[in-house]
Simulated assay, not measured.
Amino acid sequence: MLKPLRLRTMRLSIVMLLVAGLSEGQAKDEGNEIHMYDLTHEDLADTKVEDNNSGLTKSATTVNQSCEPPIYSVLMELGALRERLSATVRALEETNKKLEASEKNLFALNKTVTELSKVDQGQSKVAFSVAQPLDGTIGPVNVLHPLVYKHVLSNVGGHYNQHTGYFTAPVRGVFYFTFTSFCWGGSEECGGSLYHNGNHKVSWYGRSPNHSLSASNSAILLLQVGDKVNVHLWRNMKISDNGNSYSTFSGFLISHL
C-alpha cells in the first residue's frame, strides 16, 4: 500500500512542479511581452520624433537651397565683374599715358615761355644799325681799312662799338648782317668786305666812270660769345656819302643757341 501511495505522491509532485514551471514561464513571457510592447511603443514614438526632426531638417535644407543662388550664376557674375575691373584698369592706364604726354607738353611750353620771357626782358635782344656821317669820300688807301660807322641809328643791347666799328656777339646764336656802299660818279673803284673775327665772308664791288653807284650784300652767321664782326674797305678803293646815310652797316640776332 505504501508504494502505490509514494508513486502517486511523486507523480502529483511532478505534475505540480510542471504546472508551477509552466506558470512561471508564462509569467516571464508575459513580462517580456509587456516590456517589449513598451519598448516598441517608445521606439515608435522616438521614430516619429526622428521623422519629424528629419522633416524639419529636410524643410530647412530645402529653404536654404532655395535661398542660395546656383553656383554657375555666381561664377558668371564674378566673370562679369572681372571684365569690368580689367576695362577700368585699361582706362586708367590710358589716362595715365595721356597725363604723362600732357606733362611733357606742359614742360616744353613752360620752357618756351621762359625763353620768350627772357627775350621780353631784353636779355637776348640784340640789334644795331649805323651809317657813315661824312660828307665826302674815304680812300683810296693802300691798306685794308676798317670802316667806323659813327652815326648810330640804333644799338639795342649796346653791342656795337661806334669808336672801333666792331660788333661783338653777346650770346651764342644766329645773326643777320647787311652793309651798303655808295660811290660818286667818276670815282675810282669801290669795294669792301664783311669780316668775322678777321676772316672775309662776303663782299661788295662797283665801278662806274660816269654815274654814281650803290651796292650791298648780306650774310647770316653763327657766332660764339665774344666773336667780332665789322666791314673793311679794300686797298685802293673808295666809299662816299653826303650825310644822307647811303653807306650803312646793320645786324640783329635771329635766334640764340
Score class of each variant (00 low, 15 high):
G21C: 00
H41Q: 11
V148W: 03
F182V: 01
D38Y: 10
S59V: 03
S66H: 08
L44K: 13
G25C: 06
N52L: 11
S240M: 09
E115K: 02
N217R: 02
M237S: 13
E68G: 02
S240V: 01
E77P: 01
G206Q: 02
L147V: 15
K48Y: 09
H41K: 14
G139C: 13
K3R: 06
K118G: 10
L5R: 03
G251P: 10
D51Y: 02
F182Y: 12
N142Y: 09
F249G: 09
N96Y: 07
N236K: 13
K125N: 03
K104Q: 08
S124D: 01
L85R: 14
V15E: 02
R82N: 13
S240E: 09
N64H: 13
V15A: 05
H145F: 14
Q162A: 15
M36Y: 07
S216W: 11
T47V: 12
F167S: 08
V89R: 15
E30L: 10
E100T: 13
L144R: 05
A108F: 01
G198A: 14
L153C: 05
L233I: 08
A91C: 04
G139T: 07
G139S: 13
L222K: 08
V130Q: 08
E94I: 07
F175S: 04
C190N: 07
W204A: 02
F167L: 10
N230W: 15
T114P: 00
H159F: 11
L39R: 12
L99E: 09
F252T: 14
L56C: 01
N110Q: 12
L194C: 07
V89F: 15
S245H: 14
Y205F: 03
N155E: 07
T114N: 08
G185D: 06
H151V: 00
L18P: 00
L109D: 05
T137S: 14
A169F: 01
S66M: 11
P146T: 06
F179R: 03
M237N: 11
L7C: 01
S13W: 13
Y149A: 03
H145Y: 13
H41N: 15
H163M: 05
I220N: 08
S181E: 08
N155I: 07
Y166Q: 09
L2Q: 14
V74P: 01
L44H: 14
